[in-house]
Design a protein around this nucleic acid. Structure first.
Lengths: 155, 155
DNA sequence: GCTTGACTTAAAGTTAACTTTAACTTGTAA
DNA sequence: TTACAAGTTAAAGTTAACTTTAAGTCAAGC
């Protein structure tokens, strides 16, 4: 059994954030001692891992609450829970792809400013055609200059 | 030359967002016609690409504004701009790593609920030891159950 | 000359996820 | 017994990045 302060240190989240999650119904199967003090256990730590993961995958607190509620309803919600993870898997894969495209542009800019710094001026590199860039850099440029993405499909 | 409505469609951002960016000083070298109508060009489209990229890398609007200001100050700010891209490169790489760990947990849960669905119950899979999982799944489990990360170093 | 569509502004409103505040309780140590 | 550390609450405050509103301008077509 852990107090809120212990959990806070273990998972590196502020105490008020843990209270907020608890109040919002994200922390199921938590108990209180006779003085009303929250007592957490290893299940809480695992829940917090899942909460962080679902947050990163794009879910809101109230949606995570809904998921936690499904968990406490047992086997009859397995299908819904599975569907949610399948959806969030697609979501996070899309997000990683977008970050990788952003990273490509950033890497290109790192090269661009390396060249500019060497030469003391952007002048030459600014008007450089992709065709005249080193292969590796041209690929970064092209990856970061694809079509603008379409509007994401609604959940 | 493009109107705000044309740019909005091209880059798939709402018109008020483009006005907001312009008002916040993110869109440098934009001009107005005699009636005060904004006229954008291809440089604007490229700026919007960089803005999106810097946003994804974790920068705030006001920090992007600062960067855009450096751009308009010419060659004497090359060093600062380079440093910023180097910093944001590290930031976005860290973010991708964290998303990949979250993805590992999601993939593990997809497998978990596949098994549970097949068996009509979580009962067995819930108390499964990582040692008894398929190799591929155990690796996902381990990747998603590393130590909690330390507090990120301040900018 | 009137309507329409696309633009303009300043200012107020929205939202989610915390974060802070102020007042209070409880258990241990000096 | 007094102080301190660590817990508690409800309620108000914060923040960033938009988004909406309300009122107005302007050019083109009927």
């Amino acid at each position: 059994m852990y107090t809120i302060g212990e959990v806070s240190k273990m998972v590196n989240l502020p105490i008020p954030t843990l209270r907020y999650y608890d109040n919002e119904g994200l922390l199921i199967d938590t108990v209180r001692d006779s003085a009303g003090i929250r007592k957490f256990n290893d299940k809480t730590l695992e829940s917090l891992r899942v909460i962080e993961c679902l947050k990163k995958s794009g879910l809101q607190i109230k949606e995570i609450k809904e998921f936690m509620n499904w968990c406490s309803l047992g086997d009859k919600t397995i299908f819904q829970r599975r569907e949610m993870f399948i959806r969030q898997k697609a979501h996070i894969e899309q997000e990683i792809k977008e970050l990788e495209d952003a990273l490509a542009l950033i890497k290109f800019k790192c090269w661009y400013y390396d060249e500019a710094l060497k030469e003391g001026s952007e002048k030459r590199v600014k008007k450089l055609d992709p065709h005249d860039m080193p292969e590796e850099i041209r690929l970064l440029f092209e990856q970061s200059h694809q079509q603008y993405k379409k509007k994401p499909i609604a959940k």
